[in-house]
Nucleic acid binder design. Structure first.
Lengths: 342, 342
DNA sequence: CCCGTACTTGACACCGGTTCCCCTAAGACC
DNA sequence: GGTCTTAGGGGAACCGGTGTCAAGTACGGG
């Protein structure tokens, strides 16, 4: 009778001898239902292998069981980690994940996103940096009534809408470690202008110097944009200085790899002649030589937590575990740091 | 009147003074329509900013404007590249991308996938390796009537359902290059058992030796599973051999990074004491030191082409550009190969 | 024994599109 | 001028779920 082999709610209702509505109640675990009827319907559902049609439900509910990951982040590994975390969080639920990259800085970004959110009627979205810092996007989500969680290097919102990491403190600790090792001339390769993560990490760097009573020299600070090439170029500038810095903190691992290349091109040995610390702990950090000491940014956990926050309160029976909102980035000590040989 | 601000097809019909059906015809570009009416309806659509509801359409059509990427591939960068390619291909269409990772080798993989495909009524899916080699999954797609394209290291199917790369030939060329440089004892780090890519790449390796009239020594072939650690372990075994191989072809970049670590731990200089070629050309290849000579696997292009194949024939007016089905992997010469110093 | 109450359940309309089938009017043909 | 053909467009049902509201049932209290 059905063109598609898929049984529908009508089939279940007919076979079980109840109304559609009753079947609907069973599916949605409505409490006001006779245990007897429920059992009968459940049996039929299991028997014929009925699966509710998500499109029909989305239409009736005016809401989709779809969670989105929206980003304009160029770091594939980071995006992938967050995505993996979200998928872990969504595991076992009826939610699916949709990924939506946006063109960084495009004029049409906001309208693209609006179109996407309105069309798909997403249940919720995770806003990844740097897009998460864009207040007008948050405003858009509120206006449309789409749940959102922002991922950021510092808390910008209330806990229900944030998964934040403690970048500033983490970087402070990393740089303090360099100072502890005896370094006094420490270079910074900062992230791009206008990025919250860049600001926070830079602030952490400055905190550490201040704490140690070290002067803050502008010449020791170079700008990058988180890419390998920018790290290489920035490092060349720092390594041209006299006296040369004995250590460099790079605001991303990828840039740190660029620093390594710049150092090698000058015949410098790492870590003997130059200590390096990165940020992110993407796989490249463990794969370069020497293995990079870096700050682990817990992107997978943040993605998982964000996903759980987004869908919290849906399966009502399950206890609402309070998801953490602050994630601690920790220093991973590998082989790229040593005391200076001054 | 509407609870949500979204205008519906009814609003358009009412304002334009036509029936729903006529509006539907305009949206779907039906040819049997008076140019006058069409214009009027189009004006109203533009005026009130009407966007057809994809859920309603999916329900009526029994088909979703959703394209899936299904994989059980552990290499984040590769997945990300394919995903990026697909998004490029889907750019400007009304299709969205859904990503669905599957647990490698899980007992429930097939039923998980069936559940996913039936529920979401995907328009089509791209099957990434190694999952694409699983015939029962292809069978499932056919049975459900879900379009599919397989991505693989060799063509297993007709062109409409494949994007294939020429791994065997590419590896043959890479190894021939090593031989040309003077290498005679060349080690292979193969991929995991049962993977088509592993088989193809190994076959290419053997082709090159045979062509050059070099003996095929089993001791020079070590097994890996594409991970860094497995590459490191496999390389240790090869480097323990006497005489030591002067070059190693690794079936993945990540394993090649492991090879580099193993070589360094023995005080070997790359490329003076050991030449290395990898496969994939993921970012790590360019970031390690020395930059890794590797085979570029055109994953982004493959993803784009696959997406276009999946949705081909939908927007009927646009000319059907024939998408390529075979992608050529090319050798990228960087700094990890040199003549042996024998 | 009657009635109010709480608990179950069903009928029906609706979400926003699409398809099937039919009607109407204009033009073609004899 | 009448009939046939054809194109344009409308009505109603349908896709498969959900909300609202009211009806039916069992139970306890007065």
């Amino acid at each position: 009778m059905q063109k598609t082999g898929q049984p529908t709610i009508n089939d279940v209702a007919r076979i079980a001898g109840v109304s559609k509505k009753t079947v609907s109640r069973v599916i949605n675990k409505s409490p006001l239902l006779n245990g007897d009827t429920r059992l009968r319907v459940e049996t039929v559902i299991a028997d014929i292998g009925y699966i509710p049609n998500p499109q029909a439900r989305a239409l009736a509910l005016r809401r989709n069981y779809l969670v989105g990951l929206v980003h304009d982040n160029p770091n594939a590994q980071t995006v992938m980690n967050v995505q993996r975390g979200m998928l872990e969080g969504l595991q076992g639920t009826e939610f699916e994940l949709v990924v939506r990259p946006l063109n960084r800085g495009a004029q049409s970004m906001l309208s693209d996103l609006r179109y996407f959110l309105e069309r798909q009627r997403l249940f919720g979205v995770l806003l990844m940096p740097p897009i998460s810092e864009n207040e007008s996007i948050v405003q858009l989500c509120r206006e449309i009534g789409c749940r959102y969680v922002r991922m950021c290097s510092v808390s910008l919102d209330d806990d229900a809408h944030m998964v934040a990491s403690n970048d500033r403190e983490a970087v402070r600790g990393a740089v303090a470690y360099l100072i502890e090792q005896g370094h006094r001339r420490i270079g910074l390769i900062a992230g791009p202008q206008g990025f919250r993560s860049a600001t926070e990490r830079r602030a952490g760097f400055e905190d550490a110097l201040r704490e140690a009573g070290l002067p803050l020299q502008r010449s020791l600070i170079a700008g990058g944009d988180y890419t390998f090439e920018s790290g290489l170029v920035a490092a060349e500038r720092l390594l041209d200085l006299t006296p040369r810095p004995t250590a460099i903190f790079s605001s991303s691992d990828t840039m740190a790899a660029g620093v390594m290349h710049a150092a090698r091109a000058r015949g410098l040995d790492i870590p003997r002649d130059l200590s390096i610390i990165g940020f992110d702990d993407t796989p490249v950090a463990a794969h370069v030589w020497p293995p990079l000491t870096t700050v682990r940014w817990p992107t997978v956990s943040m993605g998982r937590s964000a996903a759980l926050k987004l869908i919290s309160g849906v399966g009502e029976e399950e206890e609402l575990v309070e998801e953490p909102s602050l994630f601690i980035s920790t220093l991973i000590r590998r082989g790229s740091v040593a005391p200076p040989i001054d």
